[in-house]
Nucleic acid binder design. Structure first.
Lengths: 110, 110
DNA sequence: AAACTATATCGTAATATTGCAATATAGAAA
DNA sequence: TTTCTATATTGCAATATTACGATATAGTTT
């Protein structure tokens, strides 16, 4: 026990869960928002923007990258991070899908 | 250490993280998908739909409810669950916000 | 080469999550 | 009221996450 039983669910369900989980921490929401705000790749100053230590930020970046929500390119000395659109579109599509369905069939009960 | 430092982030960031985290498990994605599929409130058969024990499913439902993604009404003997639109719209809005920004300013680097 | 800068990894402690058996709760049916 | 059925709660073991100090890695600058 303790480990998620991923093999009991579909690939799609597991993929969506990985994406959602990656955003399930305020620091990682903050990173995404910051990447969006500066409207470009970030090379260097993410650590200064967050109230966490450098190793912790590095770990959060790694998780976002593993989930496919950001991508990082080595840019000389620094590393250049930016939002990875395919990952973002995938999870955005999930919510749009739900929203569209709900709009069609107005909740009859509850 | 070990606990998320929620007090270092904004309310909005924490709210979004809670919503995302609630969906960060394939069972909870599956529950949302099932609630959508049946196109109505579910009274009773969620446990049979999932490859998990009744207490585990109950726990997952509780987490989705706490996060504000579903709502449950007592319906006689059973409990009637369905998707809670406001919660869903909030997180959907986050992804649309990002997507709109990205569409405006095409990624110059990376 | 030596010092500096930026980022990643390791190790580890604190805390959270996952899953389920056992049990509790509460309405429905008999 | 007893039994049945559906859901929730408790308790606990296994595993995962969070955070950071210390250290490693690697490019840049002097």
């Amino acid at each position: 026990m303790g480990a998620t039983k991923t093999d009991h669910f579909t690939d799609s369900q597991n993929e969506l869960a990985v994406l959602a989980k990656a955003l399930g921490h305020p620091a990682r929401i903050a990173i995404m928002e910051y990447l969006l705000k500066v409207d470009a790749c970030i090379c260097g100053d993410i650590v200064n923007e967050l109230p966490l230590s450098q190793p912790t930020v590095s770990q959060h970046l790694k998780e976002l990258k593993n989930a496919g929500l950001i991508k990082g390119n080595i840019e000389g000395n620094a590393i250049c991070y930016c939002i990875n659109e395919p990952g973002l579109e995938k999870i955005k599509g999930f919510f749009e899908h739900i929203s569209n369905h709900l709009a069609k069939k107005r909740n009859e009960c509850c």
